[in-house]
């Protein structure tokens, strides 16, 4: 249990998707103009991460990883299909996003209306694929750990985008040098936020 909480805290603060690995930067920069839309996108990312990472974990454990096919027959023990993982992961993500979109549209129209345009965009958000690839690289040992990692990374991404959106709303009223306006200042502010987040790095869990 403690292990799972450790993974969660670590992936929110220390290994933050945006500040430590720059994942999901494109949508982070494009959709962070107002707090309201960034909350919508942030929630959608948490949602999709929590669904796709455990599914990809199972795929990796029982289909793709080295020796994963041993459950069919002992003779398959030497098969290693991990070179297929990119294409499998992206297929899972694209189809999950489609599925989630249809389910949300049917059963939670209000949520669908607020997430609407962001859901399909998420299929190509690198934070989602990055989540699955890090899960594979870090070799989590149980599905609970993988889920906790996914939830933590999602929350970390959510915090980052809501934070930058709030700052950008305020920046609009300040005198930024003309060539820095918009994109330039957002990069620099993100860098400063990243330095602030680095203060968590010394924490040993």
């Amino acid at each position: 249990m403690q292990e799972i909480i450790n993974i969660f805290v670590k992936s929110v603060f220390i290994d933050n998707m945006v500040f430590a690995y720059f994942l999901g930067m494109c949508s982070y920069l494009a959709v962070s103009k107002t707090v309201k839309t960034s909350v919508g996108l942030g929630l959608a990312v948490v949602f999709v991460l929590v669904i796709t990472v455990p599914v990809d974990y199972l795929l990796n454990e029982y289909l793709l990883g080295p020796g994963a096919l041993a459950w069919i027959d002992e003779s398959y023990k030497t098969v290693d299909l991990s070179f297929l993982s990119f294409i499998m992961f992206i297929a899972v993500i694209a189809s999950m996003v489609q599925l989630v979109e249809m389910v949300v549209e049917k059963y939670a129209p209000a949520l669908y209306a607020s997430l609407g345009i962001f859901l399909p965009l998420i299929a190509v958000n690198c934070a989602i694929l990055g989540g699955s690839l890090f899960m594979q690289e870090r070799e989590y040992t149980s599905i609970a750990q993988a889920t906790s990692f996914a939830f933590g990374s999602g929350i970390g991404w959510f915090l980052a985008i809501v934070g930058i959106a709030a700052i950008r709303e305020k920046i609009r009223y300040s005198q930024v040098p003309a060539p820095l306006r918009g994109l330039g200042i957002t990069f620099i502010v993100t860098g400063l936020m990243g330095i602030a987040f680095m203060s968590f790095m010394g924490i040993k869990l």
Binding site: F19, A20, Y21, F22, P177, A178, P179, L180, R181, L183, G184, I185, T186, F187, I188, T190, G191, L192, M193, G194, I195, M198
Partner: peptide, 24 residues
């Protein structure tokens, strides 16, 4: 450290836009 990459790119954008006013 990772954050400096962002600041370096921010400065590149600054220089580029200062030279090419159309991009502001």
């Amino acid at each position: 450290l990772p954050p400096m990459a962002l600041i370096v790119v921010g400065i590149i954008i600054w220089v580029q836009r200062a030279r090419n006013k159309e991009l502001i």
